[in-house]
Design a protein around this nucleic acid. Structure first.
Length: 660
DNA sequence: AAACAGACTTAGAACGATTATT
DNA sequence: AATAATCGTTCTAAGTCTGTTT
């Protein structure tokens, strides 16, 4: 304990922790080649060692239990844990996993009981899977106190790594944990998906800190790979991963001054583009007709990046998923439909599909036709003279630091501002938030930010739809009942009763069935639950005849509905046999139908759009701050706690008149 | 100018916590 | 009170872009 204190305590010199905050946004700072003067931290947290499974939990091969060496068992366990996921069904994932698994198995001497494992199809991971599931269940079942205790222990273990001292200021570290070994979960059709991501040891890790900083002790029996003192970079720790041989970094958290400054600079750069956008646009429109092919390609690419918010699109290697951006678009990704319609259909970042049928500028259409002319064919680059570095160099002629991605930030924030400007300053806070989210959604759609539908999405959609249908049915029943009570109502307002014929017999029957079934379930559940409770309280149990009497009531209701269907005579509780009361009920139902269908539509519209990425990375947070101030919406309705910390600079610096 | 290494931002999935619903 | 739906956070993969080397 004391030791930890000491090494971080060497923060030394400067300010106290806590109150006097560093308001970097109030200071002028243009040079960011040097990121810090002093940097001190306690290194990184390593994942726990592997704990072998109990001996009765085994991989089965061709029906026989396999005694795996722990190193191989760990890898098999990674697969077993994913057994019910899509990964485990992916043949590439299976093959990559199995190759690496066999290699580990061989390296550690094969199965201890001599079982020769060679075919994936003969492996049965289900026992391992069940055990892992059970453990998860048990963890969930723990009492609140036990959970609290575990959390406390976890926090204590993490404490030394959560913070660092940067120029004497205490700042939060982002990902202070070394990534644990696992199977690589590449997105889309990644050729390496399923490969073993190996365990990282201190020997693999480079620490970055100032020269006078105390070097934290590596875990017992280990040494650090290297200690570096590079103050031109932001990272605290780094290691090389074995899947694509690139680096992983430990850096500061999103709420740190460093990240905040970068963020601020990003948005200021995007705002700077305002000054140049008109000339850039008129230039690329002119260059669409240039005699030089390269210039035409630059013009079309800039147009696509500006108008459709495409990414730059760098070249990718053979052993990554085949995804593209603007410069790497190929022949088959663009379909031309005269006179001006273009269909884009390709996989972008994270293998998210970009599909848009759009009208484009006449000359853009012409140029795309030229770019696709024979001998070009599927597989060929559309922009064969172009790559992001050429494009970015061209953009930098207009504005220092301008690159393709700045257009995404610029257009996203511009769109948000324009959308927010359209919102009338009226109505409830909830209504204003709905409007804000609609503006946010416009940005997310521009950037093609998607999310895959959750597991239960289709089901919950259907449920909501059925509910709506049932409201409608109930409403019609009440209207019919009104006419039974007083036929003259029909003449008074024929329109009001028009919808009583809207549901067919079949539809009504289906609704009856659902309503009845739900009632039955309700009573059955009520019965079991009540008895469990009574058993616990040592009270007398409800008898089966009690349940039966409830269910008989439901049967009765079922008969009644069937009867209604036959005779078209509605039977209602005596208390409801009153025209005014029924009309009030109808009114209530109409309200419910209105709100439910709006919610339903909202849910549907939102189901495949992810709002968070644009909120976190593209929309200048000052826009949201200004919106909240002007429209009197509490900021915490728009920004979560984490986002309020990340955007502290924006919250404290934007006044009501701020414009992007 | 191409290829590569390095360092940073942006991205959706997974998971855990919280809130709404029954 | 249990269960389902939603929200918020964590995790790490997958981009962009710069600078260096050949």
């Amino acid at each position: 304990m004391e030791e930890k204190e000491e090494s971080v305590g060497l923060s030394g010199t400067c300010e106290e922790d806590g109150d006097d905050e560093f308001k970097w946004w109030e200071k002028e700072n243009n040079d960011d080649s040097v990121k810090w003067v002093t940097l001190r931290h306690n290194g990184v947290m390593f994942p726990p060692e592997y704990e072998p499974l109990p001996s009765h939990v085994r991989l089965y091969y061709d029906g026989k239990a396999v005694e795996l060496p722990p190193e191989a068992e760990e890898v098999a366990g990674f697969f077993a844990a994913l057994l019910e996921s899509d990964h485990a069904k992916n043949p590439v994932f299976q093959r990559n996993f199995f190759n690496d698994f066999l290699e580990v198995l061989k390296r550690y001497g094969g199965a201890k009981n001599g079982v020769e494992v060679s075919s994936f199809d003969k492996c049965d991971f289900s026992k391992m899977f069940e055990y892992l599931q059970l453990q998860r269940e048990q963890r969930k079942q723990l009492s609140p106190q036990e959970k609290k205790q575990l959390k406390l222990e976890k926090d204590q273990l993490e404490e030394p790594f959560k913070y660092c001292y940067l120029d004497g200021r205490k700042e939060q570290v982002g990902n202070f944990r070394i990534e644990p070994p696992d199977l690589f979960r590449g997105r889309g059709a990644h050729p390496k998906t399923g490969k073993l991501k190996r365990r990282v040891y201190p020997e693999d890790v480079v620490l970055n800190m100032d020269k006078d900083a105390a070097i934290p002790d590596p875990p017992a029996g280990h040494k650090w790979g290297e200690i570096r003192h590079d103050n031109t970079v932001q990272w605290l720790c780094m290691w090389r991963e074995n899947i694509s041989n690139s680096f992983k970094y430990v850096r500061l958290a999103a709420n740190s001054s460093q990240k905040g400054m970068s963020d601020f600079k990003k948005f200021e750069k995007a705002r700077e583009l305002k000054k140049y956008i008109d000339i850039i646009r008129s230039d690329y429109r002119r260059s669409l007709k240039s005699k030089v092919m390269l210039e035409r390609q630059i013009a079309v690419a800039t147009y696509l990046i500006d108008v459709f918010a495409l990414r730059a699109g760098g070249e990718k290697s053979e052993d990554e998923a085949d995804t593209v951006g603007c410069c790497s678009l190929r022949y088959e990704h663009v379909t031309l439909k005269p006179p001006f319609t273009v269909i884009f259909d390709f996989l972008g970042k994270d293998s998210i599909r970009y599909y848009q049928e759009v009208e484009v500028d006449k000359q853009v259409f012409k140029n795309l036709t030229i770019f696709k002319r024979p001998p070009k064919q599927p597989g060929h680059q559309l922009f064969d003279r172009l790559d992001p570095s050429i494009l970015n160099k061209h953009l930098q002629n207009y504005m220092p630091g301008l690159t393709a991605k700045v257009f995404r930030t610029y257009n996203a924030s511009k769109t948000m501002q324009d959308q927010l400007d359209l919102i009338p300053n009226e109505g409830s806070v909830t209504e204003k938030i709905v409007r804000y989210n609609a503006a946010n959604r416009a940005v997310a759609i521009l950037c093609n930010h998607q999310r895959t539908l959750g597991r239960g999405h289709a089901a919950s959609m259907q449920k909501a739809n059925e509910k709506l249908e049932e409201y409608q049915w109930q409403k019609i029943r009440y209207k019919k009942a009104i006419l039974q009570l007083d036929e003259s109502e029909l003449k008074k307002n024929p329109k009001y009763f028009k919808e009583i014929k809207d549901l067919t017999k079949e539809e009504q029957m289906a609704i009856h069935k659902r309503v009845i079934e739900r009632e039955r379930e309700k009573y059955k559940r009520k019965f079991t639950r009540e008895n469990e409770k009574r058993k616990f309280d040592k009270e007398e149990l409800l008898t089966d005849s009690q349940l039966k009497s409830w269910l008989d009531d439901v049967d009765e209701l079922e008969k009644q509905y069937a009867q209604e269907l036959e005779t078209d005579e509605i039977v209602l509780k005596p208390t409801l046999l009153n025209v005014e009361k029924l009309k009030a009920q109808v009114e209530k139902l109409e309200q419910r139908i209105a709100t439910s269908s709006i919610q339903l539509k909202d849910k549907e519209d939102n189901s495949t759009v992810a709002l968070s990425t644009s909120k976190i990375s593209y929309i200048d947070p000052r826009l949201s701050v200004v919106f909240c101030k002007k429209y009197n919406v509490p900021l915490e309705k728009i920004f979560t706690k984490a986002l309020r910390e990340k955007f502290k600079w924006a919250i404290e610096s934007a006044d009501e008149n701020w414009r992007f």
